[in-house]
């Protein structure tokens, strides 16, 4: 398998994730889209790391996973709180900061 295959796969995954974030209203699904985009970048990091024979990229992928985990924890907590107060998990309902 050549480098191109990995790049194309990562691009497709990123596009799916971005589309999900932009098109879906449910906050949980949006979160999943975000995770998908993070993982597509992880795939790229690992790919280039292996290609160059340099471990820095793989280390960075771990960092991304850790940050993603932390983000999920905080993010899910926020979503649950919003769901409790507003009885909805739609991101479009959360527009209170608008003037």
């Amino acid at each position: 398998m050549s480098l191109t295959h990995y790049l194309v796969l990562a691009a497709i995954l990123f596009a799916i994730g971005a589309t999900t974030v932009l098109l879906r209203r449910n906050a949980i699904i949006v979160f999943m889209g975000v995770e998908l985009m993070l993982n597509s970048t992880n795939l790229l990091l690992v790919t280039f790391s292996r290609m160059h024979g340099n471990l820095s990229g793989q280390v960075l992928a771990f960092f991304v996973m850790v940050v993603a985990a932390a983000e999920v924890v905080v993010g899910l907590a926020i979503i649950v709180t919003i769901f409790r107060t507003r009885r909805s998990a739609s991101v479009d309902d959360v527009n209170l900061l608008k003037s």
Binding site: V21, L22, L23, V94, N95, L96, K98
Partner: peptide, 17 residues
């Protein structure tokens, strides 16, 4: 410009993309 600040997180994300 104010129109862009509509409070919908997804539209901000779209602009970023």
């Amino acid at each position: 410009v104010r129109r862009a600040q509509n409070g919908f997180a997804r539209s901000y994300a779209a602009v970023m993309v």
